[in-house]
Design a protein around this nucleic acid. Structure first.
Length: 574
RNA sequence: GCGGCGGUCGUCUAGCCUGGACUAGGACGCCGGCCUGCCACGCCGGAGAUCCCGGGUUCAAAUCCCGGCCGCCGCACCA
């Protein structure tokens, strides 16, 4: 019996939504083409994403586009190079795979992290390490890199990678956008773009791709003054926090945002805000509340950069709960790493409400005396004095009467500590980041799966009407000259009114309804014999199959209400 | 990557075990014509298949053998 996943895949291929890429050459696992309807639907999903996640905060959510090819240094800074490569050995007998470094550490106690595959292989041979399960011989150690690698320019060693997420393009641009925002936080950088991950074994159609589209926001804020998201504290959200999961809880609990924050299940208000928006987006894609929830990742399975991560899961028939978005509290990890690796100032600045008068102790010295006494060494001593702790100097001078710097004793009088008053207007800090990140193709898939219904043994793609790639179809009831002519006029009218509208005159009317139901066309406009009498047509609802009679001149208005405003058909007529 | 199963017109499939009359059959879909007054269900005709790819065995391979690719399921992996 065909399950939903194969029905979706079958429909997708047959009716132009998507299919395996490069298929005339046998296909390559993990790559898919989007067909005309799939591309159109994806565009609409992205549009809806922008409307839901960007538009409400349009003054502070800014969209950027950064390159896909990313230099080595960037991904080294982000931790991906380290975290995306695993040295792997395989048992030649039973085929089990292991992390080579883990295996060696277990067997010998040696610390081997960071060694080359060749060295690891040598160690395995020398120590005669075998498969811990079946005792079989182990293969050579191979480096498995989950990043796609390429070369930038003609020189070897100038390594580039296809980005595994768009986030790094946002982090490296923090300072520029911060300045664009006139140095105000919070703000978010949105990016929608292609990424590549060289999955070991991609399967599950659109749900596990090697190349796909990510839509994400890096939301930067001051951890001491995060600002208030426009958050509905009474809104309900379905959660499975780790605190409950580790006690064996399997089912999510439904709580208000307020409760989730109070209990510490969501550690940050902005996290809560984006999670709520994610839920809203899924609702708009036709996923009901009971078919989605958020699951907190355990500390072990969390990404290397994150201190809290929730996955948004959607029910699928064959694959169970499937992750469609991730919500990570990335803290100051990424920006800090880029400060460290690039040596650039990517700090934000926090102004105090009032400039603070602070008393600062400063080490002072008599440069003239030092010069006379130490000659050329004096410069070095003065440099050192700049960096010593004034408190310490004060203490030494008090206790011993001198302080030792660069191996020289400097007594009170030649060195002393002064207290000065300074005005400080603020301080530098690294912004914190929360990141909602969506896999667009996964959204596409769950949208299709949840829209696909069966009615009287036929497939009906009950997409939310505003998502339908084709909005309406004009059908002459029979292939009769007068009616066909009229139908073409109606098609013209709708096309000119801005609808994406199809036309079909072949075959029986029932067959045509069925054909357009299957690709989710919400409205079928039928021209019949009565049309020739009184200029009215029937409009048929894809889901209920009910029909109403409408004057041709009212048709654009009625369809606009029906499709864009999503009203029930009867309400659109009045 | 391992193991199991599979891959035949656009789709679903018959044929494979037991090699030859397979010029690869059917259904749906598609195209054309007729018919047709509202839900894929009438009639006639037509186009459409590298039998996944490569190699081998054989007089002869869709069919048997080997390798590869792709898909599904399980294991492993999943930053």
């Amino acid at each position: 019996m065909a399950d939903k996943a194969s029905k979706v895949a079958d429909l997708a291929q047959r009716r132009g939504f998507y299919w395996p890429a490069w298929e005339i050459y046998g296909g390559v696992a993990g790559f898919y083409d989007l067909g005309p309807l799939g591309k159109e639907l994806k565009n609409k999903i992205i549009e809806l994403w922008k409307e839901t996640l960007m538009k409400p905060l349009q003054r502070i959510i800014l969209e950027l586009e950064t390159p896909i090819i990313t230099p080595y240094r960037v991904l080294e800074a982000s931790g991906h190079v380290q975290n995306f490569t695993d040295p792997i050995v395989e048992c030649t007998k039973c085929g089990r795979k292991y992390r080579a470094d883990h295996l060696i550490e277990e067997a010998t106690g040696l610390k081997v992290e960071g060694l080359s595959p060749e060295d690891l292989t040598k160690i395995i041979k020398e120590n005669n390490i075998r498969c811990p399960v079946c005792g079989g011989e182990l293969s050579e150690v191979k480096k498995f890199l989950l990043l796609f690698q390429t070369q930038i320019g003609p020189y070897e060693g100038d390594k580039g990678f296809i980005r595994p997420e768009t986030a790094q393009g946002a982090f490296v641009n923090f300072k520029r956008v911060y300045q664009f925002m006139r140095e105000k936080l919070p703000f978010g950088i949105a990016q929608i773009g292609r990424v590549g991950r060289n999955e070991i074994s991609p399967r599950q159609g659109l749900l596990r791709l090697r190349e796909f589209t990510i839509a994400e926001i890096e939301f930067f804020f001051d951890p001491l003054n995060p600002g208030k998201p426009p958050l509905d504290y009474e809104a309900k959200i379905r959660l499975l926090p780790w605190e409950l999961a580790k006690e064996g809880q399997k089912e999510p609990v439904e709580v208000t945002i307020k409760e989730a924050l109070d209990k510490g299940w969501i550690i940050n208000e902005w996290m809560a805000y984006w999670m709520l928006k994610a839920k809203e987006l899924l609702n708009k894609l036709g996923i009901k509340d009971e078919d989605q929830f958020f699951e907190e990742k355990s500390p072990e399975e969390r990404a290397h950069y994150s201190s809290q991560t929730y996955d948004q899961l959607v029910r699928t028939e064959r694959y169970g709960w499937m992750e469609v978005s991730g919500h990570a509290y990335r803290g100051d990890y990424d920006v800090s790493r880029h400060i460290k690796f690039s040596g650039k100032d990517l700090y934000a600045f926090r102004k105090y409400k009032e400039p603070k008068k602070v008393k600062v102790k400063v080490v002072r010295w008599n440069a003239r005396e030092l010069g006379i006494r130490f000659k050329s060494k004096a410069k070095k001593i003065m440099e050192a004095l700049k960096n010593v702790d004034p408190e310490l100097v004060e203490k030494e001078l008090l206790e011993k009467g001198y302080v030792e710097v660069e191996g020289e004793k400097l007594e009170k009088g030649i060195v002393w500590v002064e207290e000065r008053e300074e005005t400080v207007s603020g301080e530098r800090f690294v912004p914190h980041v929360v990141e909602p990140s969506f896999g667009v193709e996964r959204l596409l898939y769950v949208t299709l799966e949840h829209a696909l219904k069966e009615k009287d043994g036929r497939l009906v793609l009950s997409l939310p009407r505003y998502l339908a790639p084709i909005e309406a179809v004009v059908l002459p009831l029979v292939e009769e000259d007068e009616i066909v002519k009229k139908a073409k006029e109606v098609w013209e009218l709708l096309a000119k009114s801005g609808f994406r509208v199809e036309y079909d005159e072949k075959g029986s009317i029932g067959r045509r309804y069925a054909r357009f139901d299957e690709i989710g066309v919400p409205a079928a406009v039928t021209i019949d014999f009565q049309t020739l009498q009184d200029d009215t047509v029937t409009v048929r609802d894809r889901d209920s199959w009910e029909q109403v009679r409408v004057k041709i001149e009212d048709l654009p208005k009625v369809l606009r209400r029906f499709i864009k405003e999503n009203k029930p058909l009867e309400e659109c007529v009045t």
